[in-house]
């Protein structure tokens, strides 16, 4: 169980101080949990606090019974942690196998036989076995991301924190990785932070939307979707003119009869041709953030 109460985080002090989190309250059960929000919402700061890298300015964070305020608590959490940061740095002169092996050593997987098995298994999970002995500097962006995923899993973590894990992956890899996360979540805490609304909708039972350091929504993706009920429309504009400022355009498509705009908004009175649509999770998110 992860318990966060009245969590505040401020970077710096005085007039230059930046508040990243303002009184966050969260309770996260085992399983897959999604964290959604725009850039600068505080997602990465929250992930780093849960990973024991950043200290909270105020409030309390308990992870699996460990108080993250104490050195001892942070060390205990790190011992059971798999972490994939948003800005992933690797060592280009090592091979994927060496890198994952190195991370396993740092994570305390001391038995060489066990380590060898784990490294082999995670490289297979992320489909890097055939190139595992090539230096990382020759890898594509997606392959590097998969090395990052492999290192996060190598110690068979109880808590998995992944920040934008599918960035740079091709659609097939993305689906495979999403499924892998769901499998892992059966016996673990998996925290997924992402900009990609679809990734959360497909995988998470519960989620939180953060904005400007505050919780804007807590619940399940289906309820978030329902927030936009009766507020999603398709408007066809023969001359291509965009719907007015009160509506948020979610998508647009050029058709022979004009431009189809999918919009989210309260009032479409000016557009009698508007056709009501079933909301998606993305619509729910857009409606929430309006």
């Amino acid at each position: 169980m992860i318990e966060i109460k009245n969590l505040h985080k401020t970077y710096g002090s005085g007039p230059k101080a930046v508040t990243a989190l303002k009184g966050i309250d969260l309770s996260i059960e085992q399983g897959m949990y999604g964290l959604l929000g725009p850039n600068g919402a505080g997602k990465t700061t929250l992930m780093r606090i849960l990973a024991g890298i950043v200290h909270a300015s105020a409030g309390s964070v308990w992870v699996n019974g460990n108080d993250m305020k104490t050195d001892q608590g942070r060390r205990q959490v790190k011992a059971q942690l798999g972490y994939l940061p948003q800005e992933l740095g690797l060592y280009p002169d090592l091979t994927a196998r060496q890198f994952v092996d190195y991370m396993a050593i740092l994570k305390g997987v001391d038995d060489p036989q066990l380590r060898k098995k784990r490294v082999q298994a995670v490289l297979e999970m992320v489909s890097l076995l055939d190139v595992a002995d090539r230096k990382i500097k020759g890898y594509s962006g997606g392959m590097k991301r998969r090395v990052g995923i492999a290192q996060a899993l190598v110690n068979n973590p109880r808590i998995l924190i992944v920040d934008e894990p599918t960035a740079g992956l091709d659609p097939e890899e993305r689906i495979r990785f999403r499924n892998l996360l769901v499998e892992l979540a059966a016996k673990r805490f998996v925290l997924l932070s992402t900009h990609i609304v679809g990734d959360i909708g497909q995988t998470c039972r519960n989620m939180t939307v953060l904005s400007k350091g505050e919780v804007r929504y807590q619940g399940n993706p289906a309820e978030l979707t329902q927030l936009a009920k009766d507020h999603v429309w398709t408007i066809t504009s023969p001359d291509g003119a965009k719907p007015n400022a009160g509506l948020t355009i979610v998508s647009m498509q050029h058709m022979p009869e004009g431009v189809n705009y999918r919009v989210v908004g309260a009032d479409v009175g000016r557009y009698p041709q508007a056709v009501q649509e079933q909301p998606s999770l993305e619509d729910g998110y857009v409606w929430l953030m309006k």
Partner: peptide
């Protein structure tokens, strides 16, 4: 000058 500093920090190593 360690490109994987954040990963290193996320381990339990003191």
């Amino acid at each position: 000058e360690d490109s994987a500093l954040e990963l290193q920090f996320a381990t339990k190593r003191p």
